[in-house]
């Protein structure tokens, strides 16, 4: 019991230290914050403007804006998973931090306990910015939080799923050496093919089936329901139960894969990684 308590205290200490370090380097010391936000808003405008040209004039602009805002929300969660969490492994390897972490006997996953809150702060800033950009360039999104409990649970499920996805990508980086091209393609294709942007009921039948076979579609549908953007394709309870079972199974699989990656690294040593 004492050993378990000590391990928990140690995990909390590592999480706190990582959080402090990432907050200082990424948010406080990094002067890039405002520039990054400006860049992100320009990218959003670049995507939002052409997409708005498809809008049916009979559907209110507020509904269109809500659709776009939902897409921005989900896309940025995926981006954080790809570029903040999965890509972090590449940084840890290239800066020789991972070797020190392994040598210290601590799990490299502990770093994520500190990194995730920092990423969520960033995510919140980007979502607020996205809301502002949609507001200015399209219209005020017609969003109503119909069920706060559902919103929190759907967002938590989304984080579980994308964290698992990030760990799978990170494991791939560890096992095969990195491939930025594949990571980048995944970051565009996955949210699109699995219903991240588009409600499943609006997707073609074959793509919809494919999306339902992945764990990604469930949190996105529940999130849209919670924000009153679109009704899910299956009853909310069914989506919720399948989503959580699938999400937790995916998390278990990704942690196992990550551990395999670390074990392979211990046998073969770390590779020098290139972005592309």
């Amino acid at each position: 019991m004492t050993a378990l308590f000590n391990r928990l205290v140690e995990a909390a200490r590592i999480a706190w230290v990582s959080f402090k370090l990432y907050t200082v380097s990424d948010i406080i010391r990094g002067k890039s914050g405002i520039i990054s936000l400006a860049g992100i808003s320009l990218w959003l405008i670049l995507i939002i403007l052409p997409v708005s040209l498809f809008a049916n004039p009979q559907i209110g602009l507020g509904r269109v804006a809500a659709f776009i805002f939902g897409g921005i929300l989900v896309f940025n969660v995926y981006s954080v998973a790809t570029w903040d969490w999965a890509w972090e492994i590449r940084k840890l390897i290239n800066y020789n931090v991972l070797e020190h972490l392994i040598a210290s006997g601590k799990s490299p996953l502990m770093v994520y306990l500190g990194l995730i809150p920092v990423s969520l702060i960033w995510l919140l800033m980007i979502i607020i910015l996205g809301y502002g950009v949609v507001n200015v360039f399209v219209a005020q999104p017609e969003i109503v939080i119909s069920d706060l409990k559902l919103l929190i649970l759907a967002f938590t499920l989304l984080i579980i799923v994308v964290l698992s996805y990030a760990l799978v990508l990170a494991s791939t980086i560890l096992i095969s050496g990195t491939s930025g091209a594949i990571v980048e393609i995944f970051s565009w294709v996955l949210p699109l093919a699995t219903g991240g942007f588009i409600p499943l009921s609006l997707m073609p039948e074959s793509l919809r089936t494919l999306a339902l076979l992945t764990p990604f579609s469930y949190p996105a549908e529940l999130l849209r329901k919670a924000l009153n953007i679109y009704e899910p394709i299956l009853p909310t309870n069914t989506m919720f139960i399948i989503g959580y079972i699938y999400g937790l199974a995916f998390l278990t699989f990704s942690i196992t894969l990550f551990k395999l990656g670390i074990r392979k690294t211990l046998k073969e040593g770390l590779k020098t990684l290139s972005a592309w």
């Binding site: 040209l53 498809f54 809008a55 559907i59």
Partner: peptide, 12 residues
């Protein structure tokens, strides 16, 4: 795909 989900190609 994203655009088509909120309208149609003919509007574009």
């Amino acid at each position: 795909l994203l655009g088509s989900s909120m309208g149609t190609m003919s509007y574009f």
